[in-house]
């Protein structure tokens, strides 16, 4: 059974600069990368492949336009997951993808997955938007079952046994393949590739494919705003005793003690 891992080219939100005063969000200046939880999905795909055979391939649909910088980052992100042990990668780019919502992107990705893979692994949410909508939509598009928030996956013949973490409950389900499963960060600890693996990853097959919008999007982003979080940012000075007293006084005045 071959496994597809969904890897999104996400904005590195840690590096994203926003200006509280002007409300400007410096999206173009921030780098992009594969999301942290997608490294968990990759790790799980590699482990399953090592144990049960088959190939594991990364799929990425870049929504950042055709600029050289973003294309380079997309290939770097894919090289990162290839170095962890995936067999190959596919990068889909082209005009119109930047307007893509999860409806459009699920339709486009399904074309590359149907009849080719038996299992799709994804992150419970992407690094930059964290909606978790794409794997659910992809499952619906393919007509496959969908299980989210996996913390353990075992293949048993035509089924996978999935343990998943809900708020107050840990549930174990048996799912008929083919299926789409999203994972959480607790599922494993992603391996850190050695330099030699990174060098080798650059030689692994990376298919490029042109994107053409299969449908029009159902959702558009009208505006991005910077949230107003007003914090006082008062530094309490003094030695330990003084600082504790000053803090208690301040909290009393705030009315929270």
């Amino acid at each position: 059974m071959d496994i597809a891992v969904l890897v999104k080219q996400s904005l590195d939100v840690q590096e994203l600069r926003v200006d509280q005063d002007t409300g400007k969000i410096y999206i173009e200046d921030a780098p992009t990368k594969a999301g942290d939880i997608e490294l968990n999905a990759t790790e799980e795909a590699v482990r399953l492949k090592e144990k049960f055979g088959g190939k594991a391939i990364a799929l990425m649909l870049s929504t950042w336009g055709a600029s050289g910088k973003r294309q380079k980052e997309a290939r770097e992100a894919l090289t990162r997951v290839l170095a962890m042990g995936l067999d190959g990668a596919m990068l889909i780019t082209g005009e119109g993808a930047e307007r893509g919502d999860t409806y459009m992107i699920a339709k486009a990705l399904a074309q590359e997955i149907r009849d080719k893979f038996g299992l799709v692994l994804a992150a419970e949410g992407s690094e930059d938007n964290f909606s978790g909508l794409l794997p659910a939509r992809l499952a619906a598009e393919l007509g496959w079952p969908y299980v989210a928030y996996a913390t353990a996956i075992e293949v048993e013949g035509d089924y996978v046994k999935v343990t998943r973490s809900l708020e107050d409950f840990e549930e174990v389900v048996k799912v008929k393949l083919p299926a789409v499963i999203s994972v959480t960060q607790e599922i494993n600890k992603p391996r850190v590739p050695k330099l030699v693996e990174i060098v080798k990853a650059k030689k692994k097959p990376m298919d490029q494919k042109d994107f053409s919008p299969p449908v029009e999007p159902k959702l558009t982003i009208r505006e991005l705003k910077v949230p107003k979080v007003e914090r006082k940012r008062i530094v309490i000075e003094g030695d330990v005793e003084e600082a504790a007293e000053k803090l208690i006084q301040a909290l009393k005045e705030e009315g929270v003690l």
Partner: peptide, 14 residues
């Protein structure tokens, strides 16, 4: 909320 809490997206939905 989007971008890890750094922005709020205003979205128009069909």
């Amino acid at each position: 909320m989007t971008f890890g809490g750094k922005a709020i997206a205003v979205e128009e939905m069909g």
